[in-house]
Simulated assay, not measured.
Amino acid sequence: MDEKHDHDEQLLRGRVYGADHEDPGPRPGHDYRELVGGPLDGLLLDTTGWPPAAFAAGAALTTHLGRHGGSGRSHYTPREGDPRHWDHTGDTP
């Protein structure tokens, strides 16, 4: 892993995916899942208001840090037995 990528990952820890850089932290009363592995490792995904069926499907999240750069998506699915953590399952263009 190169130095810039390592620095980017450290900046993301504890932040909410898609949140404004000025206000990156979690908000009270919201429901979050922690992303594990892959380019979004350590980010929190705000799932407040998601319908139950959406949790089984997981999420395909856009990121410039993934294998496919700015046009790619990183896929995360709920961890069996621990649905608060979502594991990286791959990247797509």
Rank of each mutant, 00 (worst) to 15 (best):
M1Y: 03
M1N: 08
M1R: 12
D2H: 08
E3I: 14
K4D: 09
H5K: 14
H5E: 05
D6C: 04
H7I: 11
H7W: 12
D8P: 00
D8L: 15
E9W: 01
E9P: 01
Q10N: 14
Q10H: 02
L11F: 02
L11G: 03
L11C: 04
L11I: 01
G14V: 06
G14H: 08
R15E: 00
V16K: 09
V16S: 02
Y17T: 02
D20H: 14
D20R: 09
D20G: 01
D20K: 05
D20T: 04
H21D: 10
H21W: 12
H21L: 14
E22K: 15
D23V: 02
D23G: 01
D23P: 00
P24D: 14
P24V: 11
P24I: 12
P24H: 08
G25H: 11
G25P: 01
G25C: 06
P26A: 12
P26N: 05
R27W: 09
R27A: 12
D31C: 09
R33D: 00
R33I: 04
E34P: 01
E34D: 01
L35E: 02
V36Q: 15
G37N: 08
G38N: 10
P39Y: 02
L40H: 07
D41E: 04
D41G: 08
D41P: 13
G42T: 04
L43Y: 10
L43G: 03
L44Y: 15
L45F: 06
L45R: 08
L45H: 05
L45I: 04
L45N: 06
D46S: 06
D46A: 05
D46G: 12
D46Y: 08
T47Y: 03
T47M: 12
T48E: 05
T48R: 02
W50G: 08
P51M: 03
P52C: 07
P52G: 04
P52N: 00
A53S: 14
A53V: 07
A54S: 14
A54E: 07
A54K: 15
A54P: 05
F55S: 03
A57I: 01
A59D: 00
A59R: 07
A60C: 09
A60V: 00
A60H: 09
L61P: 11
L61E: 10
T62A: 14
T63A: 11
H64T: 11
H64Q: 06
L65Y: 03
L65P: 00
L65T: 00
G66P: 10
G66T: 14
R67C: 02
R67Y: 03
G69T: 09
G70M: 04
S71C: 14
G72K: 13
G72M: 11
G72V: 07
S74V: 07
H75G: 00
Y76P: 11
T77M: 09
T77S: 05
T77Q: 13
P78R: 10
P78N: 11
P78G: 07
R79K: 12
R79N: 04
R79M: 06
E80N: 10
E80Q: 15
E80S: 15
E80H: 15
G81P: 08
P83H: 09
P83N: 05
H85M: 04
W86T: 00
W86R: 05
W86S: 05
W86V: 07
W86P: 10
D87K: 04
D87R: 15
H88V: 03
H88Y: 15
H88E: 01
H88R: 02
T89A: 11
T89D: 12
T89P: 00
G90V: 03
G90A: 06
G90W: 05
D91A: 11
D91I: 14
D91Y: 10
T92R: 15
P93H: 08
